[in-house]
């Protein structure tokens, strides 16, 4: 093999590897992506036929007050709401510690054709301000979650900001 041939071969090898790696990443992305919706967004997407029942997705919102019920067979039923729309959720398992009525939650699972959402994972993983970020963002858009963050940095922040003489 001449030097030039060798170089060409290495170049081809490199390009093949690049192609394989890109293909792998694209394939993995398509296959493992999970979309996050609020109840309102979900019903929109359903209406537009962008998603169909059975699709795997994440549903985020607030746990509706008074909606949590423990069934005899250990299944837990509750409702996730963004105040405009609500979705009934069933889940079998142990709820996370931070799961509370009226608090933010993210459920991952599949939407059934009867409109209920069967979750296999319920997340209440919170940031410093104790609200799942996706949920906080979604609620902020609706202007529902201002007071909580305001409570956090009460008077002295504002005071300091206005008077740093």
């Amino acid at each position: 093999m001449t030097r030039k041939q060798k170089r060409t071969l290495m170049l081809i090898g490199g390009l093949v590897f690049l192609g394989v790696a890109t293909g792998l990443i694209l394939y993995a992305l398509r296959d493992t992506l999970v979309f996050f919706y609020t109840p309102s967004e979900m019903s929109e997407k359903l209406a537009e036929h962008e998603i169909t029942p059975g699709a795997r997705l994440r549903l985020g919102g607030l746990v509706e007050k008074g909606s949590v019920k423990l069934m005899d067979d250990g299944v837990i039923r509750f409702t996730i709401t963004d105040t405009a729309k609500s979705v009934p959720v069933t889940f079998k398992g142990i709820l996370p510690d931070l799961f509370r009525e009226g608090q933010g939650v993210v459920a991952e699972g599949r939407l059934q054709s009867d409109g209920t959402f069967v979750a296999d994972t319920v997340l209440a993983k919170h940031d410093e301000k104790y609200m799942p970020r996706e949920v906080a963002d979604a609620l902020k858009k609706r202007g529902l979650w201002e007071h909580a963050s305001k409570q956090q940095n009460a008077a002295p922040t504002a005071a300091a900001a206005s008077g740093s003489y």
Binding site: L24, I25, A28, L29, D31, T32, L33, V34, F35, F36, Y37, R58, E134, D137, A138, K141
Partner: peptide, 14 residues
């Protein structure tokens, strides 16, 4: 504003 999650399966695979 659309939200998606790239989770463990993606990272484990790639």
């Amino acid at each position: 504003g659309g939200k998606i999650t790239v989770g463990e399966p993606y990272f484990n695979m790639t």
